[in-house]
Simulated assay, not measured.
Amino acid sequence: MNAKSPETLAKATGRRYRGVSNEERMAERRMKLIDAGIKVFGSTGYHTATVKGLCQEAGLTERYFYESFANAEALFTACYLHITDTLRDKLQKILLKVEADDLEQATRAGLNVFFTQFKESPEAARILLVEVLTVNRQLEELSLKTLYSFVEMLETLARPLIEQGGAGVPKSQLNSTLLASGLVGSVLYMAARWALDGCRQPVADVVENAMVIFKGVGHCLMNDC
Rank of each mutant, 00 (worst) to 15 (best):
A3C: 05
K4F: 14
E7G: 00
A10V: 01
R16W: 06
Y17Q: 02
G19M: 04
A27L: 14
R29D: 13
R30E: 12
K32L: 11
G37V: 07
I38C: 01
T44A: 06
T44Q: 08
Y46K: 01
H47S: 03
T48L: 10
T48V: 13
A49R: 01
K52R: 11
L54H: 05
Q56D: 13
L60I: 08
T61L: 12
E62D: 09
F69N: 05
A70H: 09
A72I: 07
A72Q: 15
A74P: 13
L81T: 12
H82T: 07
R88L: 05
D89I: 10
K90F: 10
L91N: 02
L95V: 00
D102E: 13
L103Q: 07
Q105R: 15
T107R: 01
L111E: 06
V113T: 06
S121V: 00
V130H: 12
V130Y: 13
V135P: 03
K145M: 04
T146H: 04
E152N: 04
M153V: 14
E155H: 00
T156K: 10
R159D: 04
Q164I: 08
G165C: 11
G168C: 14
L174W: 01
G182F: 06
G185T: 11
S186W: 12
A191H: 04
A192V: 00
A192F: 08
W194V: 02
A195S: 04
G198N: 06
G198R: 02
R200W: 06
V203N: 03
V207T: 10
E208H: 12
N209A: 14
N209C: 09
A210K: 05
M211W: 09
V212E: 12
G216R: 14
H219M: 09
